[in-house]
């Protein structure tokens, strides 16, 4: 076994061989294969999805269990004192660049939104280089954002308009934009913003408490953060329910519905991930007594992630809901 040596430099801990990677691979591959099969059964097959769901859930369970074991081992190693300052810096770098990759993922969807709003919409409506396109294909389509009427509906038909799922696009009655809300206090996104921004503040207070060595303060404020995260997810679920049940706003509502649900949906998914991370840190602190003022990277990484989803929300609020 590797042990700490007492030479003048701290040894970089290189773990012995490990089954984790192979188990995680099995879980990941089965779950993705299962998910692809479920979708194909639904879209191209006879709709019988039981077997595919089985593969998916088995894979996901296996994957989650492996990740649980993986993080557990990393935590144990740290508590056993195996992690030198240098190794800790590797984890810091790893987390930083992981968050950077997430930023780039959101950038793809924001990029799509900007491209559609500044170029595609006006072109389809006959502006600039796309003038002939409107005349020949989408006569009568007027661009506005949000887009209550898709080009398909504007020309009143689906002939010669093959779309990916061979379906049609349906207009909605009301969008989620601020201008269309019945009253400002009934506008859910505003409450969502307040909830999420305050959770970024509370997680910071928790961090301050931890740095002061005040574990009680840390536990309370981190608990509040997790609760706020849950509230956000609940409000977001309510918003989706409203959209589908009362506004007629769905994934099928043309490009407005597509960008709205994909951006807020992926954001919501990341909130759930960040919340889970924070919840685990909270449990570690409350039940396991983990974390000290100078050794709490698990919490710190989770809080970075939390600030990251918060910043994404600010951009969402601005570009999806307000402007």
């Amino acid at each position: 076994m590797t042990t700490q040596s007492s030479t003048e430099y701290e040894k970089y801990y290189v773990p012995e061989k490990s089954k984790l990677a192979v188990c995680a691979t099995i879980g990941l591959i089965l779950s993705t294969f299962g998910a692809a099969s479920v979708m194909n059964d639904m879209t191209f097959g006879d709709g019988a999805t039981t077997g595919s769901w089985g593969i998916f859930w088995f894979g996901l369970f296996f994957f989650s269990a492996t990740l649980f074991g993986w993080f557990r081992m990393a935590i144990k190693e740290n508590r056993a004192g195996l992690n030198s300052a240098q190794l800790k810096k590797s984890y810091v770098l790893g987390m930083f660049w992981f968050i950077f990759s997430e930023v780039m993922f959101f950038l793809a969807f924001f990029g799509a939104l900007f491209y559609v709003r500044t170029l595609v919409g006006p072109w389809l409506a006959g502006e600039g280089e796309g003038g002939r396109m409107n005349h020949l294909l989408w006569e009568g389509f007027n661009y506005q954002w949000p887009m209550p009427l898709t080009p398909q509906e504007a020309v009143g038909g689906v002939a010669n308009q093959p779309v990916a799922n061979m379906g049609t696009f349906q207009s909605y009655e009301q969008s989620m934009a601020f201008g269309e809300a019945a009253a400002w206090y009934l506008w859910l996104p505003m409450w969502n913003t307040i909830v999420l921004l305050s959770s970024s503040f509370t997680v910071h207070v928790a961090h301050m408490g931890l740095l002061d060595g005040n574990k009680r303060k840390f536990n309370i404020w981190l608990g509040i953060t997790v609760a706020l995260g849950m509230l956000f997810v609940a409000l977001q679920a309510l918003e989706y329910y409203e959209a589908y049940a009362h506004f007629g706003l769905t994934l099928n509502s043309g490009i407005y519905g597509s960008t709205f649900f994909m951006l807020t949906g992926f954001h919501g998914f990341h909130v759930v991930m960040g919340m889970t991370m924070l919840l685990i840190q909270w449990l570690r602190s409350v039940r396991g007594g983990h974390f000290t003022a100078d050794d709490h990277f698990g919490f710190e990484a989770s809080s970075w992630y939390w600030h990251f989803v918060d910043v994404v929300w600010v951009f969402l609020f601005l570009f999806v809901y307000i402007l």
């Binding site: 879209t43 398909q152 043309g254």
Partner: peptide, 23 residues
């Protein structure tokens, strides 16, 4: 986005829904 267009009815790459294949 491709996956969503194919299976879940979004219109990122479909002009009929206000999207654009050029996107």
């Amino acid at each position: 986005m491709m996956l969503m267009d194919i299976h879940f009815g979004t219109s990122f790459f479909s002009a009929a829904g206000g999207g654009d294949p050029v996107l």
